[in-house]
Simulated assay, not measured.
Amino acid sequence: MGQKHRSHQQHGWFHIMNRGVDRQDIFVSDLDRRVFIDEMVTAAEEFGIEIHVYCLMATHFHIIVNCPSGHLSEFVREFARAYAEGFNRRTKREGPVFTGRFVSVPLGLDDDDPDRSFMVAARYVHRNPLDFLPADTLGAYAYSSYPAYLGTAPAPAWLTTDVLQSLCGSDPVRLRRFTLTPQPSDKTPAYGRVIAAAAPTEVIDAVAASAGVTIDALHRRRSERNDARLVAAHLCRSLRTASTAELSQLFAVATQQGFRQLAARGKKLVAVDPSCARLAARALDRLCGVDRAG
Rank of each mutant, 00 (worst) to 15 (best):
R77P: 06
V35K: 09
A263F: 04
L180H: 12
R34L: 15
R221Y: 03
V272H: 07
C168G: 10
S243C: 04
D32V: 00
A233K: 05
G20F: 01
P154A: 12
V125M: 06
K267M: 13
H11I: 11
A280M: 01
P147D: 04
R260N: 15
D205R: 09
F98W: 10
V272M: 12
N128F: 06
F75K: 00
T181M: 11
Q165E: 09
A44M: 00
M40W: 09
G70N: 02
F259A: 05
C67R: 01
F75A: 01
G12A: 05
F118I: 12
F61M: 08
A148D: 02
A245P: 07
W158I: 02
A140C: 07
A254S: 13
E46A: 11
R77F: 12
R260S: 15
H8C: 12
D227F: 09
P200H: 01
S7R: 13
A199W: 10
G139L: 00
A206Q: 04
A245L: 10
T91F: 14
P68W: 07
R127I: 08
I63V: 14
F98Y: 07
G212K: 01
A280D: 07
G108V: 06
A242H: 03
Q261C: 13
D171R: 00
D285N: 14
L269D: 11
D162P: 04
R221L: 10
R19D: 10
D162Q: 12
A232N: 07
Q24P: 02
S69T: 12
R116H: 14
Y143V: 02
A280H: 00
H8I: 11
K187M: 09
P68L: 05
P154D: 09
